[in-house]
Amino acid sequence: MSSSRRCLLFSLIAIAFTLPTWAQPTQQHIKHVLVIGETKGFEHDSVSSAMAAIYNMGKQSGLWDATLRTDTELLTKKKLGNNAKNLDYFDAIVFASTTGEILTDPAQRADMLSAIHDEGKGFVGIHAALDTNYTWPEYGEMIGGWFDQHPWMTFDAPIINEAPDSPIVRQFPKTFTKHDEIYQPKAWSRDNVNVLLSLDPTKLEYNNPRVHRADHDFAVAWTKMYGKGHVFYSTLGHTVEAWDDPQIRTMYFEAIKWSLGLTEASTTTHARPAQ
């Protein structure tokens, strides 16, 4: 790893966040989470904030240790030297606003999908994880779709909590507003995912050439199964300020717990709420 990347990772670990105390009543076997923050497209300022938050959540809860990387070298089953871990070591993978074609090696692609689909390792996609790997159809199938513009840019997004009983989003009220950038997904259908949060279609402006979904169905967070693997994605987390929001941090904390198999949450699809 280059000295600049080592410095970045040390800086991330040193960042202090005012996070809730994720106290656990008993000591549990610690899990291992691989956090990837590589970007080959748009570079979000919030990547460092997201990676540091996930690292600190694991340390404070005692539930996982996080390995933070700005490359994809460890996404392999191949034995690596220099004390590097591979996918056999990790229990879940987090893509923290990755962008562009970050994984092009066919063997690595197959190893990552096998780890999730066949071995049941978790996957959590944060924001621009949907703006990643467009030349890899199986990636889109795994995560649930791809980015297709953000019609309203960063705005006060009116959000509906479609799953108030889910441990991942029960901290949110039934309806609420978050100042964030909401992605419009393509190659996506709620028939293939369990929508947790969505935009309120009655409160959106549609006189916008970037609005491409005729059904006006804009999911904000969802869960799904990919074979044996638990997959979560949310578009929330575009801004640095989002990572100071305890509700959003709790959502990602609970999503990672669920992806690791530490909690139960539904992946059953459901109809769109009546408006």
Score class of each variant (00 low, 15 high):
Phe155Thr: 12
Trp64Val: 05
Thr72Glu: 06
Arg69Asn: 10
Asn83Thr: 07
Phe147Pro: 00
Gly144Glu: 12
Asn82Arg: 10
Asp105Ala: 09
Thr104Gln: 14
Glu101Asp: 15
Ala96His: 05
Gly100Ser: 12
Trp64Asn: 04
Leu75Gly: 02
Phe147Met: 05
Leu63Cys: 06
Thr70Glu: 00
Ser61Thr: 02
Ala157Gly: 11
Phe155Tyr: 15
Tyr134Met: 08
Lys77Gly: 03
Gly62Asp: 11
Val124Glu: 04
Asp105Cys: 06
Leu113Ala: 07
Glu119Arg: 14
Asn82Phe: 13
Gly145Cys: 07
Tyr89His: 15
Met153Arg: 14
Lys121Glu: 06
Pro137Tyr: 07
Gly122Phe: 04
Leu103Trp: 14
Thr132Arg: 09
Asn86Val: 07
Trp146Pro: 01
Leu75Tyr: 11
Leu103Gly: 01
Gly145Gln: 08
Thr99Gln: 06
Phe123Val: 13
Trp146Phe: 11
Asp91Met: 13
Ser114Lys: 14
Val124Lys: 05
Gly120Ala: 11
Leu113Lys: 12
Asn133Thr: 04
Ala115Val: 03
Val124Phe: 03
Arg109Cys: 04
Pro106Leu: 12
Lys121Thr: 03
Gly144Asn: 10
His117Glu: 15
Asn133Val: 02
Met153Tyr: 10
Leu103Thr: 07
Gly100Ile: 09
Thr154Pro: 00
Lys79Tyr: 01
Met142Phe: 11
Asn133Lys: 06
Pro164Asp: 11
Asp91Arg: 03
Pro151Val: 06
Glu73Pro: 00
Thr76Gln: 08
Arg69Thr: 06
Phe90Ala: 11
Glu162His: 07
Thr67Phe: 01
Gly100Ala: 12
Leu63Met: 08
